[in-house]
């Protein structure tokens, strides 16, 4: 072992670089959140100071609560995200099982067909998607968003889950067959519980882009009662652009749910990425 690898100077340099970049990454979030708790004059006079007894104010949050439908937006985002994840995982796992478990003609082709969507963004088809949603009456409903996000998430889900399902032991499944379990029971009772970690990875990968998407809510569901939190805060901020207290509070409120989700799921997310699930 050489000395170069544990030179104390190196480790000081490494920590300095990492702390510097961590500050760059967190600074904007920090500034937004602390200023959302200050009164208007203090925001401009000392933007970097923490709120103290004198400058503390919740006026921005009061405006947001009075003027915006943030609870409704939050509820919409929540329904869309959870429902999309449910369908992505259920349909994705079923298709992945069929591709991983059975030999049939066209298996390879079907896998390739489903994998196409990994590289081609669904946004390219927006014009026709909107027409379809208008003609089926789904425009301005949460179903439009759920369908689009399910279709968007399926390709990667099938790809990742089928990799994992190939590793489930054949002996186990054959034992189930000898015991007279149907193929459906083998899938739901034996295989699904074993691939739960992979399902969690897929869920976490899909959750953040769905929650944060602006394009499809803007195009498919812009009506007030179906606005998602991302679109709702965008519109709200656009209307209140000169009311800095309200804008900063709305931004902080939009940051909060994602941050909570991240704190809960960050381990899963990081483990998912680093285990090479996206290769």
């Amino acid at each position: 072992m050489s000395t170069a690898r544990h030179n104390p100077l190196n480790s000081v340099a490494a920590h300095t670089a990492l702390i510097a970049y961590t500050l760059i990454a967190l600074f904007p979030v920090f500034v937004i959140v602390i200023n959302s708790f200050k009164e208007r004059r203090a925001i401009f006079r000392e933007p970097l100071a923490l709120p103290d007894a004198e400058s503390f104010s919740l006026i921005g949050y009061q405006t947001v609560m009075k003027q915006g439908n943030f609870f409704l937006y939050f509820q919409n985002s929540f329904i869309v995200t959870v429902a999309s994840l449910f369908f992505i995982l259920l349909f994705g796992a079923m298709a992945a099982f069929a591709l991983a478990e059975y030999r049939f003609r066209g298996n390879m082709l079907m896998g390739l067909y489903l994998a196409l969507g990994i590289m081609i963004p669904i946004r390219i088809g927006t014009v026709a998607i909107l027409q379809m949603m208008v003609s089926t009456g789904l425009v301005n409903t949460l179903w439009a968003l759920i369908l689009v996000y399910t279709a968007q998430g399926l390709p990667l889900a099938v790809f990742i889950l089928s990799e994992f399902m190939r590793q489930v032991s054949d002996d186990l499944k054959n034992a189930g067959r000898i015991d007279g379990l149907s193929e459906y029971k083998i899938f739901f009772r034996l295989v699904l519980p074993l691939v739960r970690p992979a399902m969690a990875t897929v869920a976490v990968f899909n959750m953040i882009p769905i929650w944060n998407d602006l394009w499809f809510p803007l195009i498919l569901a812009p009506a007030e009662e179906v606005k998602t939190l991302t679109l709702g805060s965008q519109v709200f901020i656009g209307q209140f652009v000169t009311d800095w207290n309200a804008v900063l509070s709305a931004l902080s409120l939009a940051i909060l749910p994602v941050l909570v989700l991240y704190v809960i799921f960050s381990r899963q997310l990081i483990r998912g990425i680093t285990s090479g699930a996206v290769k």
Binding site: P28, I32, N212, A254, I255, L259
Partner: peptide, 10 residues
């Protein structure tokens, strides 16, 4: 990784 999870709007 935190900035990556924030929405473009934020």
């Amino acid at each position: 990784f935190i900035p990556t999870i924030l929405s473009f709007v934020i």
